[in-house]
Amino acid sequence: MSMFNLNNSYKAVVIGGSAGSFQGVVKILSQLPKGFPLPIIMALHRLKHVRHGFVEALSLKSVVQVVEPDDKEPLKKGGVYLAPANYHLSVELGNNFSLSTEEMMNNSRPAIDITLGSCAYVFKDKLIGILLSGANKDGALGMKYIKDRGGMTIVQEPSECMIETMPKAAMAVTQIDHVLKVDQIIEFFKELDKQYK
């Protein structure tokens, strides 16, 4: 009955987005199944020098409060995390976060490729990567890393995106398992949640 062919082996979900992704992220977080078991790690392009406001705005309607992790903060089951302003966010092998002020990548810090790439390295085929609307190519390579290491790749349906460059760039460099509208991504989360109950 499911179109997604899911199982309960996944360990984390990572989401990248840029211009035009905010509404989609808010909607996904507001309809997250209660007690959703996996950590959700988000790298979203944002103003570099504005530390406050973004995580609060995302948390307003979210089922789970969104956290900007400190360096070396451990990942928690069901935690929802956002890369802080002006830092790249990675996951380490011991299942904690690390931050970095390395050079901007794709003109961005946080860069989606860095977060996706480090998650792919740590979680291998136990990772689901989702790339949403955006105006540059950041995240495309990260999605390729995820696919190359056996993870699942999902992009937002380009026709639904405010700016389709980002999902299209990912579709051009790697195999995308599912091309979904935001409402279908919400269904996907519900379906995934059921695998763990």
Binding site: S90, V91, E92, L93, S98, S100, E102, I114, S118, Y121
Partner: peptide, 9 residues
């Protein structure tokens, strides 16, 4: 060193 950034460097 932290693995992920050291690896990238």
């Amino acid at each position: 060193y932290a693995m992920s950034s050291f690896k990238r460097r």
